[in-house]
Simulated assay, not measured.
Amino acid sequence: MADDINNGFDLDAAWAEEQRTPFTFTWAGSRWTLPHLGDIDWRMVALADEMDLPAIQEVLRTGMGERAAEWEDTPQPAPAMLKLFDAWLEHSGMRPGEAPGSDGSSPSTEEPSPPISTASTASASAKPSSGRRKSGSRSGS
């Protein structure tokens, strides 16, 4: 592994060992390739994963690399781009709402709120009538 007791953890070596397959797709008659989402800055991916449309646009533009200008000249209807982003997430082993590096929610730092009322077994509402229900028309005809 990339861990040496004398030198500490070598993140450069550990990252170089990772195997990440690029994502290829066809759109508007052209073949496009995006890097694995694991190769994009996780802060950018996290914003996009929250369905922030400008962030999705930015992560796609970043992923296009040298072809970014060509990508910008290509039609990008929102429903198609959202399908593309979801497929890219899936290819990268993620599901929507599961940004890389996310470890679930953090514990609460708030103290529990005090109860606002006391528990009671009796109801304060009026009791239902036990009398017979009247029948017939109200119109008097």
Rank of each mutant, 00 (worst) to 15 (best):
D41T: 00
V45E: 01
P77V: 05
K134A: 14
A13S: 11
K83I: 10
E72K: 00
A14V: 08
F85R: 03
R138E: 01
R31L: 06
P22A: 05
M44T: 04
L53N: 04
R43H: 08
P35H: 03
N6A: 11
E58L: 08
S139M: 09
G140N: 07
S92Q: 04
M51V: 08
D39I: 02
P114N: 09
I5E: 12
E50P: 01
E111A: 14
G97Q: 10
R20H: 08
P54Y: 03
G136K: 06
D52V: 14
F25I: 02
D4I: 05
A126T: 14
S137Q: 09
P100T: 11
L11W: 13
T33G: 02
S102F: 10
R95T: 15
A124P: 06
T21Y: 05
A16C: 03
I116M: 08
D39P: 01
F9P: 09
S92C: 06
R20T: 04
S108K: 11
M1E: 15
A68Q: 09
T74K: 00
T118V: 07
P107N: 12
W88I: 08
N6F: 12
K83D: 15
E111F: 09
W71D: 09
Q57L: 01
S137W: 05
A119K: 11
H91L: 10
E90R: 15
P35Q: 03
V59K: 04
D3Q: 08
H91Y: 04
G63T: 02
M94K: 11
D86R: 14
W15R: 15
T26Y: 05
S108W: 14
L34Q: 01
L47Y: 02
S135T: 12
S105H: 12
V59E: 00
A55F: 01
T74H: 01
V45T: 01
D52K: 07
P96N: 09
E17H: 02
R43E: 00
G101W: 07
P112A: 13
A13H: 06
M51C: 03
S137E: 06
L11R: 15
W32F: 00
S102C: 12
R61P: 00
A119S: 09
F9M: 09
G131T: 13
A69I: 08
S139D: 10
P75Y: 10
M81D: 09
A55V: 08
D52M: 07
G8S: 10
F9S: 09
K83Q: 15
P128G: 11
W15I: 12
A16Y: 05
K127G: 13
K83P: 05
R132K: 14
D52R: 03
T62Q: 03
